[in-house]
Simulated scan of single mutants.
Amino acid sequence: MLVKQKGIIIKTVDYGESDKIITILNEHGAKIPLMVRRAKKSKTGLQATTQLFVEGLFIYNKWRGMGTLNSIDVLNSHYDLRMDLFTNSYASLCLETIDGALDAEQVDAQLYALLSFALTQIDSGVSAQLVANIVMLKCIYYYGFDINLTQCAIKHTEQPGEFVGYSFKYDGVISRAVAHLDSHLMPLSNKVIYLMAILKKLPLSKINSISIHDDIVEEMSQFILLIYKEYAGVYFKSQRMINQLKRFNINLE
Results as ranks from 00 to 15, higher is better:
residue 229 K to G: 07
residue 19 D to I: 10
residue 23 T to K: 12
residue 109 A to E: 15
residue 143 Y to L: 07
residue 201 K to A: 15
residue 169 K to Y: 02
residue 223 F to M: 03
residue 66 M to H: 04
residue 28 H to P: 02
residue 138 K to V: 11
residue 83 M to E: 15
residue 70 N to K: 13
residue 192 V to N: 04
residue 202 L to G: 04
residue 26 N to P: 10
residue 9 I to S: 00
residue 39 A to M: 09
residue 206 K to M: 11
residue 27 E to Y: 06
residue 41 K to S: 11
residue 224 I to K: 00
residue 156 H to S: 12
residue 180 H to P: 00
residue 68 T to C: 03
residue 182 D to V: 08
residue 62 K to S: 14
residue 81 L to Q: 04
residue 52 L to W: 00
residue 185 L to T: 06
residue 213 H to N: 13
residue 25 L to A: 10
residue 159 Q to M: 10
residue 3 V to N: 04
residue 184 H to G: 00
residue 36 V to A: 08
residue 203 P to F: 06
residue 140 I to G: 02
residue 43 K to W: 13
residue 174 I to G: 00
residue 58 F to D: 03
residue 133 N to P: 10
residue 46 L to S: 05
residue 119 L to G: 01
residue 176 R to H: 12
residue 24 I to H: 04
residue 58 F to R: 03
residue 125 G to H: 07
residue 199 L to N: 07
residue 106 Q to N: 12
residue 124 S to A: 10
residue 71 S to V: 05
residue 127 S to K: 13
residue 158 E to T: 15
residue 210 I to L: 15
residue 102 L to H: 06
residue 14 D to T: 05
residue 173 V to I: 15
residue 18 S to L: 09
residue 157 T to N: 12
residue 10 I to K: 00
residue 37 R to I: 08
residue 100 G to W: 06
residue 205 S to F: 03
residue 8 I to S: 04
residue 231 Y to P: 03
residue 154 I to V: 14
residue 40 K to P: 01
residue 53 F to A: 00
residue 142 Y to D: 07
residue 222 Q to D: 12
